[in-house]
Design a protein around this nucleic acid. Structure first.
Length: 264
DNA sequence: CTCAGTGTTCAGTG
DNA sequence: TCACTGAACACTGA
């Protein structure tokens, strides 16, 4: 689930549910893996009674802006998400953190697979892991020349570099594949060898894909029909709408789906 | 039963 | 020191 658009949708959900409200209660599940550094008990204590000003995000990281420090910094891993509900009975399975606002609104972070993380930081944007992130494509993109300079010293396949959070914060596996598909670039191409025209296409496609996915609140049924996204999952013999073969192979440790007829 | 998976980190290598 | 690769992590569902 969680690439940049899902995390941004979660940010907005949390802001609607909790923004401006005081937290009457906070509960943390006894999970020593998801809670990293600070104990569940300490995280809950740091939230209880605080007012939520807003919810911040960079890349795939979220944090709650409270009226006191430290602030909780959340990452959804592979299977994390937020749920908003009204009564304790609805607390979701696999919940890790539950916040109860003064008006009774409840928000929980859940995470089945436990790759998610919950940490405490005094100033999230200025401390790792958030401070180590590259640019967030929803916030703005570096100029083409700067981006090309960034890529010039990377010999790894462009697919791998797109997934590098210290360069492109928030890009995940499907966005990387979608960008390369729409830009007409083979995923194996060494990043440094992309022409400036290709870097330009990659840059504008990345921007438009992220903006569009966020505009539809990351609901994939509302992604444009032509996107590779809708076809990348079906078995090994899937094709694009134009009947071009979709190939699946492992690049940089991740499955890449791409269309040889359209990507050079 | 086996394997892949919308992610990150760490060990090992060059 | 840096860039890169592959394995490990934890768990579900196909």
């Amino acid at each position: 689930m969680p690439e940049l658009p899902d995390v941004e949708a979660a940010r907005r959900l949390a802001e609607r549910a909790l923004g401006g409200k005081r937290l009457a209660e906070a509960r943390a599940a006894p999970d020593r893996i998801v809670f990293d550094g600070a104990s569940p008990r300490r995280v809950a204590a740091s939230l209880r009674g605080r007012r939520v000003g807003g919810v911040g995000r960079k890349g795939k990281y979220l944090w709650l802006e409270l009226d006191g420090r430290p602030w909780p910094v959340l990452h959804f891993g592979m299977t994390g998400s937020f749920r908003v509900y009204e009564s304790a009975q609805e607390r979701p399975r696999f919940w890790k953190l539950e916040l109860v606002a003064e008006d009774g609104t409840r928000l929980a972070m859940r995470d089945v697979r436990r790759f998610g993380r919950i940490r405490l930081r005094r100033d999230p944007a200025r401390e790792p892991p958030v401070s180590l992130l590259g640019f967030d494509p929803l916030e703005g993109m570096p100029p083409v020349a700067e981006l090309q300079k960034l890529l010039a010293r990377r010999k790894a396949p462009i697919k791998a570099v797109l997934l590098d959070q210290t360069v492109f914060a928030g890009v995940g596996n499907w966005i990387a594949d979608e960008v390369l598909f729409q830009a007409g670039i083979r995923p194996h191409r060494p990043a440094a060898e992309l022409s400036s025209a290709e870097v330009q296409r990659l840059r504008s496609r990345l921007r438009s894909i992220v903006v569009r996915a966020v505009a539809v609140e990351a609901e994939s049924e509302r992604f444009p029909r032509g996107w590779l996204f809708h076809r990348r999952w079906y078995g090994g013999e899937s094709t694009t709408a134009g009947a071009e073969a979709i190939v699946r192979e492992t690049i940089a440790g991740r499955t890449a789906a791409w269309v040889p007829a359209r990507q050079r």
